Simulated scan of single mutants.
Amino acid sequence: MILRLGRQLTGRLSGQLSGHAHEPPAPAVPGEPLAEADGVRVQLGGRDVLAGVTLAARAGEVLALVGPNGAGKSTLLAALAADLPADEGVVRVCGHPTTGWSAPELALRRAVLPQSAALSFPFTVAEVVRMGRAPWAGTPYEDDDDRVVAESLAATEVSAFAARSFSALSGGERARVALARVLAQRAPLLLLDEPTAALDLRHQELVLRLCRERAAAGDAVVVVLHDLGLAAAYADRAAVLHDGRVAAEGAPGEVFTEELLSRVYRQRVEVFPHPRTGTPLVTPVREAG
């Protein structure tokens, strides 16, 4: 997927932003829905990829979207981001239908991390991260750019190669730089599609800790994950998607059951508590021998 400089980074902000659009959203009340899908149906290629999904992401929590390939996780994330229109139902961001927000206004309210990022031009790492500050161009908040970019580079552990070309990085390094761009945007709603997919063990943990930090600061974080262990350890709530529907939603300790996961993934699993933390551990049932 090409890094959406036009839509997500709002590079066409100049001359288009009204004074209202420049204003940051008011701080959210803990538990306030910052993204809502209400009966959302999305058709792609003549079939329902989402079939009437209702779900909310709330300020102060991490919501993990899990499920097998083709369950509709990335489609739901794209619908919540207003990058993919719903054929039926309503998507709201910060309490208002996404169709009522302009692109610049949305950029102040939600930041999106796609599954992969590619650039056709030789931008440096620091320049890519600075793109996350585009929504604040021409405002008093532009004065924070240098500080916010430096903090985002440091948080994702990419400061050491800030001057390198983005195209010269490894897949895992690119993933962390793309996350740094999202953090630099300082939006209260973060929508992250498989942010740990290309990362080693250390950086998987780093990314999920950053998600928890943003939630603790009052943001709503929606993250698509394949690793059920990471979802159980870091998410406040998990939505298990299956065939375009939410098969279960709630705390991972409540919804990660052997019966549900075995049915949804079509693979027998065992679920047992971690001996120290009590966090659910999910392992496939394997034949002995």
Rank of each mutant, 00 (worst) to 15 (best):
R109C: 08
V129K: 03
L210C: 10
E151G: 06
A150C: 05
R181P: 11
R12Y: 13
L55A: 00
I2K: 15
L210I: 13
P27S: 01
H20G: 14
F166D: 01
F161W: 05
V40E: 03
L201V: 15
L201Y: 14
T257P: 03
G70E: 06
E258Q: 13
A198I: 04
P273M: 12
V177D: 12
A248G: 06
V29Y: 00
Q16G: 12
G46S: 05
V264E: 07
F166H: 02
H242V: 10
E127V: 05
N69T: 07
E287T: 14
L50P: 07
D38K: 07
A118M: 13
T279Y: 03
D193P: 06
L119E: 03
D219S: 12
T54Q: 05
A239E: 04
F166T: 09
A26L: 13
D144N: 12
T196Q: 00
E213F: 05
L50M: 06
A103M: 13
R174Y: 08
A154R: 15
R92I: 00
L190F: 04
D38Q: 14
D193S: 01
V269R: 03
V223N: 07
F272Q: 02
S120C: 12
T277S: 15
A197I: 07
P114E: 01
V129I: 02
G19D: 15
H274M: 08
A154W: 06
R58C: 11
E259M: 08
L179C: 11
L113N: 02
V128S: 03
T279D: 10
A81V: 04
L34P: 02
G15V: 00
E88K: 14
L281S: 10
E151V: 00
A64P: 06
A107K: 11
V207P: 09
L108P: 02
G67L: 02
A150S: 11
Q204A: 13
E270C: 14
V182D: 12
L210R: 11
E151A: 13
L77V: 08
Q16P: 12
P114N: 07
Q16H: 14
R176N: 07
R268M: 06
Q185Y: 09
A220Q: 02
L241I: 07
E157A: 15
V112I: 07
T139K: 04
V158D: 09
V207H: 10
A28T: 07
V129E: 04
G253H: 03
A160T: 12
P30A: 08
R92S: 03
L169G: 08
Q8L: 14
V224H: 05
E127A: 09
G89E: 02
A21I: 12
R4K: 14
M1Y: 13
L119M: 11
D87L: 09
G39M: 01
G172T: 10
P97A: 10
L80F: 05
E88F: 04
G60W: 06
L201K: 10
H22C: 15
G39K: 00
L241K: 07
A184P: 05
H22W: 15
